[in-house]
C-alpha cells in the first residue's frame, strides 16, 4: 500500500529503522553513564555544600550557579570546541584516532572525542541538578538526627555517610528519577556536536529518505519507550531503596 502524499509516498525500509535503533542504544548508553557520574558528583557536591570551610561552600555554590544558569547547549559547545582548542595538537590527533583494546576476547573501543565531550558536559550539568535535589533531601532530615548521632560518638563523616545520607536518599528518590528522565531527554542536544544518538540518526534518516513524518515518528516513539521504560524501572526500584517504608 502506498501512503498518501503528505507521508511522502513511501515507508521506511528496515535498515533505516536499524540506524535509529542504534541511535537509541547510544542514547541509552550515554544516559546511563551520565546518570552514574552525575549521581556520584552530585553527592560530593551536596556534601561540599555542608562543609565547615567557607571557601569550599563558595566554590560549590559557584559551580552550581554556573552550571544551572547557563544552557546545556553552550556548555556542550564550550567543552567540544573550547577544550579541543586548549589541548595540544598531538593529543587531539590521538583522541580522534580510533583505539582498541582487546582484553580476553572482548574488544573495548575508545569512544570518539564527541562522545567524551558530551559525557563530560552532560555529567557536570546534570550533577548540578542532582546536587540541588540531594541538598533538599539533606535539609529534610531532622537536625535532631544529626545531633543524636554526634552524641553517640560518630564523626561528622560517619554521621553524613550512615545517618543523614540514607534518609536523604529516601526523600530524593522521586525527584532524582525526574532528573534521570531529564538526562535521557538532554542527550538529544549532543547531536549538535555530532554524537550519533537518536535525534542525530533521525535527522540522518530524514535527509536520506525525505520521509520526514516517518523518521520523526519512529524517533519520538523510541524516546517515549526509553523514558517510559526508565520510569517503570525507577518505580520498581523505589520500594527497595525506600527500605520497605
Amino acid at each position: 500500500m502506498t501512503p498518501p502524499a503528505w507521508l511522502g509516498y513511501g515507508w521506511l525500509e528496515p535498515h533505516f529503522i536499524g540506524w535509529m535503533l542504534q541511535g537509541a542504544a547510544l542514547t541509552a548508553w550515554l544516559a546511563l553513564l551520565v546518570c552514574g557520574l552525575a549521581t556520584l558528583l552530585g553527592v560530593l557536591l551536596a556534601a561540599g555544600y555542608e562543609q565547615r570551610w567557607r571557601s569550599v561552600r563558595l566554590a560549590v555554590r559557584a559551580f552550581l550557579s554556573l552550571h544551572r544558569n547557563t544552557p546545556l547547549m553552550v556548555q556542550l559547545l564550550l567543552w567540544y570546541f573550547g577544550v579541543a582548542g586548549l589541548l595540544p595538537e598531538a593529543v587531539m590527533l590521538w583522541l580522534n584516532a580510533p583505539h582498541e583494546v582487546t582484553l580476553a576476547g572482548w574488544t573495548l573501543a575508545w569512544p570518539s572525542f564527541e562522545f567524551v565531550a558530551a559525557l563530560i558536559a552532560l555529567s557536570l550539568y546534570s550533577a548540578a541538578f542532582v546536587a540541588e535535589e540531594i541538598r533538599a533531601g539533606i535539609r529534610s532530615v531532622a537536625p535532631g538526627q544529626h545531633a543524636a548521632a554526634l552524641a553517640l560518638g560518630m564523626t561528622p563523616r560517619q554521621v553524613f555517610r550512615h545517618i543523614v545520607l540514607p534518609q536523604a536518599l529516601r526523600v530524593v528518590c522521586r525527584p532524582l528519577l525526574g532528573q534521570y528522565l531529564g538526562v535521557i531527554k538532554n542527550t538529544s542536544l549532543t547531536m549538535a556536536i555530532g554524537v550519533a544518538e537518536l535525534s542525530y540518526s533521525s535527522r540522518q534518516v530524514e535527509s536520506e529518505t525525505l520521509l520526514t513524518f516517518q523518521a520523526f515518528a519512529v524517533a519520538t516513539l523510541l524516546y517515549l519507550l526509553l523514558v517510559l521504560g526508565a520510569q517503570l524501572a525507577g518505580g520498581r526500584a523505589r520500594p527497595t531503596l525506600g527500605g520497605g517504608r
Binding site: 503528505w6 528522565l181 535521557i184 531527554k185 538532554n186 542527550t187 538529544s188 542536544l189 547531536m191 535525534s199 533521525s202 535527522r203 530524514e206 520526514t212 513524518f213 520523526f216 524517533a219 519520538t220 524516546y223 517515549l224 523514558v227 517510559l228
Partner: peptide, 21 residues
Amino acid sequence: LLRAIPVVMLIFWCYFLLPVL
C-alpha cells in the same frame, strides 16, 4: 506526551513538518 519527549524532537516536528503539512 509533551513532557516525555525531548525539546529537540518537538522542534524537529514543528520545523520540518509544519511546512509540509
